[in-house]
Each structure stands twice: as structure tokens, then as C-alpha cells.
Deep mutational scan, measured.
Amino acid sequence: MDVFMKGLSKAKEGVVAAAEKTKQGVAEAAGKTKEGVLYVGSKTKEGVVHGVATVAEKTKEQVTNVGGAVVTGVTAVAQKTVEGAGSIAAATGFVKKDQLGKNEEGAPQEGILEDMPVDPDNEAYEMPSEEGYQDYEPEA
């Protein structure tokens, strides 16, 4: 019985440690998101679009440190934060509304985080759909 109880105690310690790591990862992701939003706020009209992409990228980098179902929630929060940063930029006159959601080359930025393969159960990952990809044929 002692062996059984000791095993359960060790398992509990492992769960607590994993929860603490997840909590730490979420806190880091939130900190990076805040950094990115402050970065966007300090940019001029020309830099705002690039700044919004930076927020998304920093958040995406930190999301990889967070495991399990938390990833889905962090990704949703990050996307809403990026959308909010863009709205703030438009409201303050840093950028025109028609410039939001495009990178410096004018290509749409939507789907940055949505296409990231995420499995809350950590069982399997699927690649994003290939609808947006084109076949590449090298020139002879």
C-alpha cells in the first residue's frame, strides 16, 4: 500500500510541476504579447503594419512553449490582441483601416495563427491545408 501511495504522490508532483510550467509559459506569452502591443503603439504610420505582424510573430513563438489545451486559448487571445492593436492603430490615425491585415508588401496577414497546427491532446499534428499553395516548377 505504501508503494501505491508513494507512486500516487510522485504522479501528483509531476502534474503540479507540469501545471506550473504551463502557467509560466502562458505568463511569458502574455508578456511578449504586451511587449508587441507597446511596440505597435510606438510606431509611426509606416511601421504600424509591420508592428502588428511582430506582435503576432512574438506571440506565436511563445505559444510553442505552452502545451496542451492552453495553446488553443493563448492563440485565440493573441489573435484578438493583434486585431485590437490594429483597431487602436486605425482609431489613433497611425494607419488607414484599409491597410490593416496586410503586410508591407500588401499581402493579407489573416491566418497567421489560424494555420498553425495545434492539437490540445498532444496526440497528432496535421499540416495546414494546401489550398493556398501553388506547385513550383523550376525553369529549365
Rank of each mutant, 00 (worst) to 15 (best):
E139L: 03
M1Q: 00
D98R: 08
D135T: 04
A124K: 15
N122M: 13
L38W: 07
E126F: 04
L38D: 03
G36R: 14
H50P: 02
G25V: 15
A85K: 02
A89H: 08
A19V: 12
V70I: 09
V55A: 06
T92P: 02
G132L: 03
V49A: 15
K23G: 02
N65M: 07
Y133H: 08
E57P: 02
E110L: 10
K34F: 06
E28D: 05
M5R: 08
V16P: 00
V49M: 15
Y125Q: 15
G132I: 14
Q99N: 15
G84L: 14
M1A: 00
E139Y: 10
G67E: 03
E110A: 14
N65W: 14
E137T: 06
E114K: 15
L100D: 04
G51F: 10
G68Q: 03
F4K: 00
V82S: 07
A29K: 04
G73K: 10
K34D: 00
D119E: 12
A19E: 00
S129D: 07
L8M: 04
E105Y: 15
D2F: 14
K23N: 01
P138M: 04
E110W: 04
D119K: 03
M5F: 01
V26Q: 00
A30S: 06
V26P: 00
Y136A: 05
D121I: 15
V66T: 03
E104M: 10
A56E: 01
K32L: 12
K6I: 10
K80P: 02
A19W: 14
T81R: 02
V16C: 13
K97E: 08
V95S: 11
E110F: 05
V52Y: 03
G84T: 05
E28H: 05
D135R: 08
D98G: 09
K6W: 03
G14N: 08
E123S: 09
K21N: 04
H50S: 09
K58G: 01
K102W: 11
E131K: 07
G101Q: 11
M116H: 14
A69F: 14
E20K: 03
K102L: 10
P138T: 08
A90F: 15
V48C: 08
K21G: 00
A56Y: 07
V82L: 12
S42P: 01
I88N: 02
Y133V: 05
E13G: 07
V82C: 11
T59S: 07
V52A: 07
E20T: 13
G86Y: 14
K21C: 03
E131Q: 15
T44I: 11
E131W: 08
V16E: 13
T44S: 08
K96D: 04
A11Y: 06
A53Q: 14
D119Y: 01
V40A: 04
T64R: 15
T54K: 06
M1R: 00
K45G: 04
A27G: 07
T22W: 13
V40I: 14
D2P: 02
A27E: 02
G73M: 14
D119F: 03
D121K: 14
K60E: 01
A69K: 09
A76V: 10
K45Y: 14
S129H: 07
I112A: 02
T59F: 10
G73R: 07
A90G: 01
K96V: 07
Y133W: 08
K10M: 11
E114L: 07
G86I: 14
T44P: 00
G47K: 08
K21L: 11
A19S: 02
V48D: 00
Y125W: 08
E114H: 15
V71E: 01
A89Y: 14
P138W: 07
P108Y: 06
L38T: 10
G84I: 15
V55Q: 02
G36L: 15
A11C: 15
P120Y: 08
V49S: 14
K80I: 05
Y133C: 07
F94R: 01
V118P: 10
A11L: 14
N103I: 06
N122I: 06
A27V: 07
A78D: 02
G41N: 03
A91W: 09
Q134L: 08
K21Y: 12
E57T: 09
D115Y: 08
D2N: 12
M5G: 01
A140Y: 09
M127L: 05
A76C: 15
T33H: 01
V77M: 12
I112L: 06
D135H: 06
G84K: 13
E114T: 15
E61A: 09
A91N: 07
L8V: 04
A85Q: 02
G101W: 08
A76Q: 12
A76G: 08
V16D: 01
V52L: 09
D2M: 02
A76I: 12
E139M: 09
Y125M: 02
K97P: 04
L8W: 09
E126V: 12
Q79E: 06
E130A: 04
K96E: 09
T44A: 08
M5N: 10
A69S: 03
A56S: 15
A17I: 03
E139G: 07
E46W: 09
K23H: 05
I88F: 10
D115P: 04
A56V: 13
K80R: 07
Q24I: 14
L113W: 11
A11H: 01
E13H: 02
Q134P: 06
N103K: 06
V26A: 03
E28S: 14
Y39V: 11
G84R: 15
E131I: 07
V82G: 02
V77I: 12
M127E: 14
L113Q: 13
K10W: 05
E130F: 05
Q62Y: 06
G7F: 11
E114S: 12
P108K: 06
K10H: 04
V66I: 14
E20Q: 10
A91G: 06
E123K: 06
T44M: 13
A17Q: 10
I88Q: 01
N65R: 13
L8I: 02
K6F: 01
N65S: 10
G68T: 08
V16W: 13
E46C: 09
G51I: 15
S42F: 11
G67S: 08
G7Y: 03
G67K: 07
L100K: 05
F4W: 04
I88G: 02
M127C: 07
S129K: 05
Q109K: 13
V52F: 09
T75K: 13
M5K: 10
G106I: 11
E13Q: 06
A76K: 08
K34E: 00
Q134D: 05
A69T: 11
V49T: 08
V118A: 06
K21A: 10
E104G: 10
V37C: 05
P108T: 15
V77C: 14
T81E: 01
V74G: 01
V118E: 06
K58V: 11
A90Q: 09
K80N: 03
Y39W: 06
A19M: 07
A124G: 14
A140W: 11
A17V: 07
E104L: 14
Q79G: 05
Q109S: 05
G86L: 07
D98L: 15
E105T: 11
E28C: 07
F94S: 01
E57C: 06
I112H: 09
G41C: 14
K45A: 15
E46Y: 15
A107T: 15
A140G: 12
K97H: 14
F4Y: 02
E139N: 11
P117V: 13
T92N: 05
V15D: 00
M1D: 00
E104I: 08
Q24P: 00
K96I: 03
K32A: 10
P108A: 06
V16R: 15
A140V: 10
